[in-house]
Design a protein around this nucleic acid. Sequence first.
DNA 1: CAGGATCCCATAGGATACTG
DNA 2: CAGTATCCTATGGGATCCTG
Lengths: 143, 143
Amino acid sequence: MKDNHLRSDCSICYAIDIFGDKWTLLILRDMLFEGKSSFSEFKASEEKIATNILTARLKVLDAEGFLIKTASAANKAKYLYSLTDKAIDLLPVFVELFAWSDKHRAVKPPCNPIYKRLEANKSETIPAYAAELKQRRDAILGA
Amino acid sequence: MKDNHLRSDCSICYAIDIFGDKWTLLILRDMLFEGKSSFSEFKASEEKIATNILTARLKVLDAEGFLIKTASAANKAKYLYSLTDKAIDLLPVFVELFAWSDKHRAVKPPCNPIYKRLEANKSETIPAYAAELKQRRDAILGA
DNA sequence: CAGGATCCCATAGGATACTG
DNA sequence: CAGTATCCTATGGGATCCTG
């Protein structure tokens, strides 16, 4: 994809142009549902992302306004990645994607309890969880 | 991705392993929202997919149970691609993705009226549209 | 019209080693 | 710990031509 050159005006295409690959959504999953916020935590996920890919994806997510990078207060050599509202707004997409996957894949894996919590009563549970995420973020950023 | 080798048990990862690329969701979009059902119609979409990629993606979508390929009744050399329930079940994902994109992209493009119809009253409109799609499909397949 | 076949390039991504 | 730097391979993908 050429930089800053949209393939079309389509809204779906806009989304795919940003995170239509094998890794970006997994990083966002880690942040949205696994409470992860650092390079080494992402690296430790079971899909085993390579460090060069991880660096590249974090850079894009930053540039596209999905996350904010700050230095850790405790450890100067450590960085923390916080979610923007734009990223948190992807929650409904993840919930639907999860529900679909859970319905159609052959093997049923043990699933993250947070998903289960969000599947029922979506119009209440999702905004509530989004608020939690924003609260955690603001605590870290000291906003 | 190695064939039939899942990177992890994660449900999100399952979905990404199938359609985590720049083209697959656009083909499904064309089928779900644009009423397209043939090779040449997909090829004509404004993102200009290459024929080798299109062939490859259709093959994967077929193998993964997203569509059914049948010979056209009218034209023997023509094939029709119909959506399976598995593909139609992606409707909620598309609707949320569309809503997210529409909220966060800088430029607001003129949008497909079908999306607008599905954004309100989702729990009624989405199943209704899904039923429409299945009806159309069954008419074609003569089921 | 639906694709297959080729050629070729760019990017994705894996593995490993290294640095502040 | 958070990357950078390489090196290498595999795949994605564009362009073009060809065939039943």
